[in-house]
Nucleic acid binder design. Structure first.
Length: 475
RNA sequence: GCCGGGGUGGCCGAACGGUUCAGGCGACAGCCUGCAGAGCUGUUCUAUGUGGGUUCAAUUCCCAUCCCCGGCUCCA
C-alpha cells in the first residue's frame, strides 16, 4: 500500500491518483540565477526517486518541472554581467541540466519556463481580479488580497493575524494594503531595464508565485496529484500558489504536497547566502564520483535533514563500492558445476524476501534506508554463497535480475565511464609492468610499482580477473 | 513570539508497544591472499537527551524538561 506524508494534512495518506494509472506530478524547479549546489540538488534527487518509484509501481507519470527565469535575482545578475536576460539564464539552465545528467536524474517530461508563459499568467491574474481576490496598487502593480481567501494558511498552518505581527517588510514599501499580500504582477520599474512585457495588465513582469500556478494548471489541469519542493517553499511560495489557484478555479489545487528537508552543513542550512555550499562540480574536482553524491543524497529519508560531511560522503562512496563490487563478483564467479545442496531454492526465497522488504519500505513514504538494508542483507548472504563456491549461474541470474530491478530505482550501480578521466598511458604501462613482475613472483618490484601508482593517485587491486584500478580520493 | 522537524552505538541511519534495537561506514582481530584489497566471521554493540507516568511489556504512548535544526515573503 503506497503511502506518502502529506504536508497539507500532516500525516501519512494512502496514495490514490485522480486518474487510475496516471500521476500528475509537479516539481518546483530552480531559479536560474546561479549554479545549483548539492543542497538544491537534493530536491531533484528526491523527486527522481519519487518518480522512479511511481513508475516502478506501474504509474504513467506526467512530470512537470518549472524553471524560474525571471525574478529579482535573475534581473540583478543580468545587469551585473551586462547581458540580455535570456543569455544570462541560459548559462545556468545548461549547467543545471548537466548536473541532472551527472546525477542520473531523469528529466521531467515538460520543463516550462516562466518567460514563455506570460499569457497564461495574465489570464489567471485577470480571473483573480474579476473574482475580487486581487487589487491594483498606485504604481500599477497587482496584489493578491490574502484576507479574501478564507483558507489562507492551510498549508503552512500559519494564521493571518500572526503573519502581520511577524512581518519583516515595511507595509508601505510597495503600496500593498497588507504586508502579507503578495505580488501577482509587478509594474515596470526603471531598475528592471528592458525586462518587461506589454500585456493587458500593463507594462511589467509577473510575481514569483503566479508562474507555478499558471504552468502547473496548463500542463496538469486544475487539480494535480503531487506537488513537490523543499520545505522552505511551504511558506510563502506554496501557500500562495494554493491561494491563487484555488481562488481562481474553486477547486482543490493539489492532493498531496511532498516536501524534502534541507541539507545541513556544520549545523547550518546549506544556502547560497551563507556561502557554505558545494556544487556538484566542486566535489568532482576533489575526485568524488557524482553518482556517489547521488547515493548519499538518496540514502537518507527525504524528510530528514541531511548533515553533509566529507566523512559521510566517503561512507556513501564505500557503501556504493560494496554494491558495485558485488555486481562484479556476481558476474565473475558463478560456478558452472551444479552442486548438491539446495542453494537454488534458498536463493530464490532470499531474492523474493528482499524484493518484498524493499517494496514495502519504499511504499512507506520512500523509506530508502530500510529498503537499502534489505539489499545489503541479500548482498551479505549471497557473498557467503559465493565464498563457498556453490553459486550457480542460475542463482546468479536470479540475484542479478533483482539487482537490476532495484537499480531502476536507485540508478547508482553502473559507473558512468565519461565522468572520471581514463588513466593515462603511463599509468596503464605501469600496471602492465607490475603484472609482469607478479607473474615472475618478483614481489619487490610489484610492490614498488604499486606504491608509485598510489602516489600518482591510483589504487591497484589484484582480483582473480586481473588488476583493477581505483582512483584515490583527495580531501 | 508563532509554526514545523528532530535528539538511537565512534559516525551515519532504520524500527515506533512485544523474538538478541535493521543496515551502512569506521576501527581492531581471525580466515583467505605473495603482501594488500575484495569477501566472510567476530569484537567495538549491556546505543534509544533527561525526569516522571501508563502498561505484563516503551526506543515506540502520555506529561514535564533540556538541547539542536528549519520556516515566519531571497532561498531546494
Amino acid at each position: 500500500m503506497l503511502q506518502f506524508y502529506n504536508t497539507l494534512t500532516r500525516r501519512r495518506e494512502v496514495f490514490k491518483p485522480i486518474e487510475n494509472g496516471t500521476v500528475r506530478l509537479y516539481s518546483c524547479g530552480l531559479t536560474v540565477y546561479d549554479y545549483a549546489h548539492i543542497g538544491n540538488l537534493r530536491a531533484y534527487v528526491f523527486v527522481d526517486l519519487l518518480r522512479r518509484w511511481l513508475e516502478y509501481r506501474g504509474f504513467n507519470v506526467q512530470h512537470v518541472m518549472n524553471l524560474t527565469d525571471v525574478d529579482d535575482k535573475t534581473i540583478r545578475g543580468m545587469k551585473e554581467e551586462g547581458v540580455p536576460l535570456k543569455q544570462y539564464t541560459e548559462k545556468y539552465i545548461t549547467a543545471f541540466f548537466e548536473d541532472l545528467e551527472l546525477l542520473n536524474i531523469k528529466k521531467a517530461k515538460i520543463l516550462p519556463k516562466a518567460t514563455e508563459h506570460i499569457e497564461e499568467m495574465v489570464k489567471l491574474i485577470e480571473i483573480l481580479l474579476q473574482k475580487g481576490y486581487a487589487y491594483h496598487s498606485d504604481d500599477g502593480s497587482i496584489y493578491y488580497d490574502i484576507s479574501k481567501f478564507k483558507n489562507y494558511g492551510e498549508l503552512s498552518k500559519m494564521k493571518i493575524e500572526e503573519l502581520k505581527a511577524g512581518a519583516r517588510v515595511k507595509v508601505d514599501e510597495y503600496g500593498k494594503n497588507e504586508a502579507r499580500d503578495f505580488a501577482l504582477w509587478r509594474a515596470w520599474d526603471p531598475d528592471d531595464g528592458d525586462v518587461f512585457w506589454e500585456t493587458r495588465l500593463g507594462k511589467g513582469r509577473p510575481g514569483w508565485h503566479i508562474e507555478c500556478s499558471a504552468m502547473s494548471m496548463k500542463y496538469l489541469g486544475t487539480t494535480m496529484d503531487i506537488h513537490t519542493g523543499g520545505v522552505d517553499n511551504i511558506f510563502p511560495h506554496h501557500e500562495n500558489e494554493l491561494a491563487q489557484s484555488e481562488a481562481a478555479t474553486g477547486e482543490r489545487f493539489v492532493n498531496q504536497w511532498l516536501h524534502n528537508e534541507h541539507l545541513v552543513i556544520k549545523g547550518e542550512r546549506m544556502g547560497k547566502s551563507l556561502k557554505n555550499f558545494y556544487t556538484l562540480k566542486d566535489l568532482m574536482q576533489k575526485n568524488h564520483d557524482p553518482i556517489a553524491v547521488r547515493f548519499l543524497l538518496l540514502s537518507t529519508y527525504y524528510r530528514k535533514q541531511l548533515h553533509f560531511t566529507f566523512e559521510g560522503l566517503e561512507a556513501a562512496e564505500n557503501g556504493l563500492q560494496r554494491l558495485r563490487d558485488f555486481m562484479q563478483r556476481l558476474n565473475e564467479t558463478a560456478s558452472k558445476t551444479p552442486r548438491q545442496k539446495m542453494e537454488g531454492d534458498w536463493i530464490r526465497q532470499r531474492v523474493q524476501e528482499t524484493k518484498n522488504d524493499f517494496e514495502k519500505a519504499m511504499d512507506d513514504d520512500l523509506d530508502v534506508s530500510r529498503a537499502l538494508a534489505a539489499v545489503f542483507n541479500l548482498v551479505r548472504d549471497v557473498n557467503r554463497v559465493i565464498d563457498s563456491k556453490s553459486l550457480t549461474d542460475a542463482d546468479a541470474e536470479l540475484v542479478r535480475t533483482l539487482m537490476n530491478e532495484i537499480e531502476r530505482i536507485l540508478g547508482v550501480l553502473y559507473e558512468k565511464e565519461l565522468v572520471l578521466e581514463e588513466p593515462s598511458v603511463e599509468v596503464r604501462k605501469l600496471v602492465l609492468k607490475r603484472e609482469e613482475a607478479r607473474q615472475m613472483k618478483d614481489w619487490k618490484v610489484a610492490d614498488t610499482i604499486r606504491k608509485r601508482l598510489l602516489k600518482m593517485g591510483f589504487i591497484v587491486e589484484d582480483t582473480p580477473q586481473g588488476p583493477r584500478l581505483r582512483r584515490k580520493r583527495q580531501q
